[in-house]
Design a binder for these strands. Structure first.
Lengths: 233, 233
DNA sequence: TGGGGAATTTGCCGTGGCGCAACCCCGCGT
DNA sequence: ACGCGGGGTTGCGCCACGGCAAATTCCCCA
């Protein structure tokens, strides 16, 4: 019943995939539930690392803020993904803030529980390494883009990535499944909302995208891919 | 003797710290040695992931190249650090190229050996997660800097980081212990060698650094730290 | 000791995109 | 129905940087 369903969910999560069912049952028993409304903060940058979460439903955003107030979006989290990776690496304070974009539902555990399970079951630690390696790799790609590409290409790459990760087929094209403002895109691509706005307007004119208030639909993916490559000068 | 010394080295590596000695002995027995001369390539971006390494002595550089030929420096590796992390995450091809800067000496293992050891000994997998989490975190910081800071601040942060990681006390100040060209700094900060050169010249004039052909010495760390923070507009 | 090539320096110019500011638009609450 | 506020759009001017080009310096090697 209830418990079985939880175990099914854990089995599909990035951290616990392939872990034997009895271990999942143990994890399930040790977990608590956390609900967040849209806009609620799961934890803030600098908070002590004491809890680990896995997203059941909903979408969260991880950001980092500079002392000057500038913000950068590190990543988005969806179902099955983990929040609070510092628990796995022994960090003492969260490097970023995590906020719910939709009403969300998560599993939570005390840090010690997860650390204990990870040392007792290599499969979990192996998954942890794989997930963190994957995130490390994603960051390498973003860093490379940010270093070597023009703003328009970066925005194109970012939109394509979001469409791939959270795309939802509609009549008009592929819609990004969560609210995404110009400001958000700017914080993902290292530019300003003004420039993002101008770029999207230009694309709109060419019929490549259809966008509005915190909403982006990609109409011509191939055209966008061309933009993203743009080897020209 | 020989074998004991190898085990001591492994014990101090980032991946095998805290692993029981018998396991280290097993690892030692399964390892081979790899020597590289300055400039030699350990593996290239896109190569199949079949070997894992740990640096014994020397300094290596990990870079990523775009189809257009632009290069980005992902990180530097020194003694005790691992090369070929994709082995740990199940990747099939190397995301970047790794090149020796000095004459270097490494331990090597077939990928399967390391994967096997990691699943059999949770401590190794836990270390792997910790190291990859740390690298992920470093990339977050760099991404934030690249997104929000001016060129001069980014160069300052980068030089400070290098001085911290590979700094060597000298009479004139803290010297970065490996050859570091303007081009290298440019590829770390997402700018051009021209701009780096101009910036270093300006600093030189103020006595903040003392630099020359592939060589940087930081004279006034506090002044450089001020540059790096530079909250001014 | 004399090249030769790589690394660096520097001036000059062009420009992408940021900052600012004004304005518009839409959805929501009362 | 109406007003308000959070997003979004757009025009304008400026400037930090990149691109280009030429000169210089320095190290390595014959």
């Amino acid at each position: 019943m209830e418990q079985q369903r939880d175990i099914e969910i854990l089995k599909r999560s990035e951290l616990f995939a392939g872990v034997p069912t009895p271990v999942l049952a143990e994890l399930q028993a040790a977990s608590f539930r956390k609900r967040l409304a849209a806009g609620d903060v799961l934890f803030r940058q600098g908070d002590p690392v004491d809890t680990f979460y896995i997203v059941i439903v909903g979408r969260l955003r991880v950001t980092q803020t500079t002392p000057e107030g500038a913000q950068v979006i590190i990543r988005y989290l969806g179902p099955g993904q983990m929040a609070g990776y510092s628990v796995l690496t022994g960090g003492t304070q969260h490097p970023g803030s995590t906020t719910a974009l939709d009403d969300s539902h998560l599993f939570g555990w005390p840090a010690a529980t997860i650390r204990d399970m990870m040392t007792r079951h290599a499969a979990i630690a192996v998954n942890a390494a794989a997930v963190l390696g994957e995130r490390y790799h994603e960051m390498q790609v973003r860093l490379r883009e940010l270093s070597t590409e023009r703003v328009e290409q970066r925005i194109a790459h970012t939109v394509l990535r979001l469409a791939r990760q959270a795309g939802h087929r509609t009549a008009r094209g592929i819609e990004i499944a969560f609210p995404l403002s110009r400001q958000d895109l700017a914080e993902m691509t290292g530019t300003t909302l003004h420039t993002v706005s101008r770029t999207l307007s230009a694309w709109e004119e060419k019929g490549i995208v259809d966008s509005g208030r915190r909403r982006v639909i990609v109409c011509k993916i191939d055209a966008l891919e061309t933009m993203a490559e743009a080897a020209d000068k």
